[in-house]
Nucleic acid binder design. Sequence first.
DNA 1: TTGTAAGCGTTATCAA
DNA 2: TTGATAACGCTTACAA
Lengths: 333, 333
Amino acid sequence: MTTLKELAKLLNISVSTVSKALNDSHEISEQTKKRVNELAAKLNYKPNRIAQQLKTNKTKTIGVILPTVTNPFFAEVLHGIETAATKHDYDILVCLSDELLSKEKRSLELLSNGSVDGFIIAVARESQVRSEFKHFARVLENRIPILLFDRVIQDIECDKVIVNDFQSVYEATKFLIEKEERSNILLISNIEELSVGKLRIKGYNKVIEEHGLQSNVLKLGNVENVEEEVFRYLNDHPKIDAVISIDHITGIVAINMAKKLGRLVPEDLSVIGFGYDKTPMLSSPRISIIHQKAFDIGQQSMKTLLDSFKSEDHQFMTLVIPSELKLEESTVN
Amino acid sequence: MTTLKELAKLLNISVSTVSKALNDSHEISEQTKKRVNELAAKLNYKPNRIAQQLKTNKTKTIGVILPTVTNPFFAEVLHGIETAATKHDYDILVCLSDELLSKEKRSLELLSNGSVDGFIIAVARESQVRSEFKHFARVLENRIPILLFDRVIQDIECDKVIVNDFQSVYEATKFLIEKEERSNILLISNIEELSVGKLRIKGYNKVIEEHGLQSNVLKLGNVENVEEEVFRYLNDHPKIDAVISIDHITGIVAINMAKKLGRLVPEDLSVIGFGYDKTPMLSSPRISIIHQKAFDIGQQSMKTLLDSFKSEDHQFMTLVIPSELKLEESTVN
DNA sequence: TTGTAAGCGTTATCAA
DNA sequence: TTGATAACGCTTACAA
């Protein structure tokens, strides 16, 4: 790699002159600028970023710690994060916690050594289940900003970007009751331990209660044989006339199992799940979804974090990105 | 952030003594080591990585440029890459090209300034379609190693990790003909412009030819209304008795559309698609897939690249990670 | 208009 | 056993 020193030597001028010339300083004559730029171009000179980082004490890099990236929600969030980062000339260091506290902790510690200017994080499942958040607090004490999204922590004071989990499920359930005229609504979940899962279930229960209906919640945890469990439940409970799934998998499974049982969708059973752009295409009939604007969540997270760098005494904020009920005529009437 | 200098000042010893003590040098007395380590722990000292990078001229960071991460294949590859990186104490800077030549070029150039020790890349669709690869050559000239995976380039000399695209489709098609006794096999594709798509189609055509059958290829490009197109094709061609999809979407769509047309799967129509771990669960009946070991591809890519750093005169290699035909009794007989 | 020198936080060489 | 110093590549005050 070509350095300033090398250019200076070849041109028989000083390093600082070269530096200034490349930065188009008014102190330098046009002629020198031209000579310098030409040689730099010829030798494909690029200022060494590490040196710049050391000098300016800014890395222009954000550490992104995600629980997983095979879940399409987080994949799309990452897309949004990357897009916003690129737009503002930042890079992202990506770590996956695999939902494990230990990995999350390790990544956080390893990157808290000047590697990044800040973090964007969705908390690992294990950390949430065990309510173990000290590692976040420690980073904040070190004055490295953190932005939490989706799975956030009440007690940690920092910027947050969340989804209207409670509200969206509340409204979807209400829709099933009032517009679809359903009264035996099953909620299926494989994320009930997560903060977002709890909120979604609360949203469901609230409406159910308001309408004096019976609450039916099928908690699947992280089991392998989701299909079998759903099949059995639907088989054992023939009165169920609507399903609301609070993740992006089990809604599709419910449609498939209902059909296997000879139930007509949407005539016998209305189905609403969670999902993203391509989710509806994966089931037949196309599933109605509570569409989480994952890309926006990612973009806004990055934007909010970068904005916070600018203002001096920054006030922490919590941004809510509302989900959108996307109905398909095929799964609701 | 605490620095060596600060520690030195507080302890009234020199910076170099502190440095050596922290690195457990034999030159330093146990007593000093103890004092230093205790204070360092207390102040949560971490050696500044940027400074280390500048000093050693190694970033321990790999640039990863992916076309997209919402495609589950690339998401899972990324997972493998990250896992291997963490294992070897490397970080990854992730850039998404969004399948665009311009973004790919930009990321490559921006990171070729000492930000990374090497690259792992899957070529963007546009770069492949336009056969524009100069930007890769330029990076290699700068002596920054590149490892290409999945979508590789013949003319670029570097390490490569690929899938047996030709072979896997050849064998799957052969299976449909010989074991399933199908003779009107439709290949559906939405990736025919890609190198991997071309190879897969070749694999199909080879068997078709060997058996003197008719080649039926439905190219969808990147259209929106995939479902409609597939529906129409199946409707217009009632003789089709098997489908092989060379991506992870259209196979599921084919199952759904066939059912909509009243065709029985697998009795009337055998279906094999491409996919990953959770793909079969998304269709009913569960779809048989050519299972790409995306996680392994990611891991091996990282491992191969890091290995290449060690040996001096490294010989480029091309690693093939064979896909596995994963049959489900529900979509083949 | 150009050059000198200090400094960012480390590590490593050499001297004390 | 400890310390002074130079160096990595860059930027920037200050001097010439």
